[in-house]
Design a protein around this nucleic acid. Structure first.
Lengths: 344, 344
DNA sequence: GATTTACTTGCCACCGGTGGCAAATTGGTT
DNA sequence: AACCAATTTGCCACCGGTGGCAAGTAAATC
């Protein structure tokens, strides 16, 4: 293992003090041009790169960001992670991933401990953990830089990136209504999550504009997994009276609906329209391909990471100026169709 | 932000030198029992936890592991990551993720630089990056701890965890043959990856035991994405003469085959048997659910991480003793069936 | 009781940077 | 030439731990 060059080596060879080398590394303004170029030359000749740990110890910076989540959906996580990493690698940060249990009593402790142990410069918090106000409060109090991804604007612009799920769900409602559907069911996510209630309320609101009301017994709560999608779909589709359209809180559950419909011999979209939410990989792979809402996950991740790094590097104003709201969009595929009149 | 207790605080309050506190933290044997318990008491009272950066600076340990990959498949990555994190969090390590470009000329530099910048204690390398011998060589020379995941035993037991894809593919061949299939096509992964050639060769070998030979024009190379799965399936299924069974190198491509078959009105499994490889989430979601090979990804991740940490903590013998080979297994679902005699 | 041996503990330098301030240099004024 | 402000550079302490070795203490041996 080749011995790594230190700041002292650079200083000695360049004939300056190590303090000056340090200044060059950190882009300090008060370094003469000739000195700067000389030092830079030596740095590149020696392929010197500063020791992050030493730097961190002296300056309390680690160039490490954390990603905090408690998320069952691999596809969502992967999307976010890719986005975050893209910005990270451009700006010289690394990413430490940290799953945790949202409902654990030690959530706040866990996260703070994590940040402190790894001396993270900041964290990005994904839903549903991002909905924890106690965690947000603790982060704020501890003076940590953080950004939350959410579907509700529950923090000031500096600390959050939101997607307007409510509006998107309303758009789906409009689309359903315009296809002539009146007997519509909704499979919700866990009602304890704002992201779930936002979508449900948006959907209801959208329908009410067309004078359609969701029957209470046609609102069924799943937990966003494929398996509960199947259970909920069974309840709906094995009943005497069936809906002509089902909107599920995410694509996983919508895929469950497709499976049940298929096994019951119900044709999608001819006899039943099905839509999901997310537009992850699964949506386009299943047969028929799912009509869904495309969440700009990657874009949110990019925004959040930029914001976070700005606020770390002390441009708080700039950080809060970065657009913080993104709009999901309707993607129509094969799983939805105009309602068949004769079925009335 | 509450000021964090340091080792000096602990030492002062416990009435010992900080060197002794350090010994307690690191579980050194040469500390008296009474001293130890006293120090431990103070540590927990102050909620002291050592500063990782300072520790790293002094001892060249970071308690950070790296995950190196260049992988398009979100589901695979997520599986691995979950497994790795499980072990990490149990053993007090954190995980830094690092995507890179396998085919980049700077791959080796990138990775070494990454390790050095973050002062990682070790890395886990996923396929296909794990197949790079130059990278492995560089890691070895730099004295870094590393473990590779692969489907070929291309390193000594200490540095690798393999899954026997060849045998698994052979089992699929046997299964196809026993269902009476003779006209079989194979959609391979990129031939430059060993994982791809292993599966193909295993499949061919398995078939040859039944006197079946793959027609050269029925071996088509995809790149493991859904999209190329579709392209390859079109070639096969729009031809004059069609296979009665298609084995794809992974589930994504197999899903592509299902899509094409559906759009051409070919019934699966009645007219065409389709199988994939991986058994990721997608396999059970699609209709019909895919017969596939279940790769014990999580288990591999667990093994690899244990091995890595053992070798970091200098139990090299123990590390090489951990079982390093796992066996994928056949999972039969709905996409395969006995060939219909009349089609002969 | 003196000496040896094994075990605990403490001291101090050091890991590789940065912060604060003093010193040196530069250039412009009077 | 002397003086002053602004800019550049260097010195030294410090961040919070660990390593090596010496010192102190207790138990074992003669």
């Amino acid at each position: 293992m080749q011995k790594q060059a230190t700041i002292n080596d650079v200083a000695r060879i360049a004939g300056v003090s190590k303090r000056t080398v340090s200044r060059v590394i950190n882009g300090s303004l008060s370094v003469g041009d000739t000195t700067r170029t000389r030092v830079e030359k030596v740095i590149s000749e020696l392929k010197y790169s500063p020791n992050t740990q030493a730097r961190g110890l002296a300056s309390s910076r680690s160039y490490l960001l954390g990603l905090i989540y408690d998320n069952p959906d691999a596809l969502y996580l992967d999307d976010v992670q890719r986005g975050v990493l893209e910005v990270c690698s451009n700006l010289g940060y690394e990413l430490v991933v940290h799953p945790c249990r949202y409902r654990s009593e030690t959530l706040v402790q866990d996260c703070l401990r994590f940040m402190q142990r790894s001396k993270l410069d900041g964290v990005i918090v994904l839903p549903p953990v991002s909905e924890s106000e106690t965690l947000a409060q603790a982060l704020k109090e501890s003076g940590s830089a953080y950004v939350r991804l959410s579907s509700v604007a529950l923090d000031d612009a500096k600390h959050i990136v939101v997607s307007d799920d409510r509006a998107a769900a309303a758009e789906m409602a409009r689309y359903f209504a315009q296809l002539g559907h009146e007997h519509i069911a909704f499979i919700s996510g866990p009602q304890r999550y704002k992201s779930s209630t936002e979508r449900m309320e948006g959907f209801q609101l959208g329908l009410s504009a067309y004078g359609i009301k969701l029957r209470p017994d046609w609102i069924i709560e799943g937990n966003n997994t494929y398996e509960t999608g199947i259970e909920c779909a069974r309840q709906l589709l094995q009943a005497e009276e069936k809906p002509t359209a089902i909107f599920a809180n995410n694509d996983q559950m919508a895929a469950g609906v497709l499976k049940v419909a298929h096994s019951l011999g119900i044709k999608v979209p001819e006899q039943l329209s099905v839509a999901g939410f997310d537009d992850n990989m699964l949506a386009s792979r299943v047969i028929p391909a799912l009509t869904t809402i495309k969440r700009p996950v990657r874009q949110m991740a990019l925004l959040a990471t930029s914001k976070l790094i700005m606020s770390i590097e002390n441009n708080d104003k700039a950080a809060s100026n970065v657009a913080a709201k993104v709009a999901p969009t309707l993607v129509v595929r094969e799983s939805t169709a105009r309602v068949i009149e004769s079925s009335n």
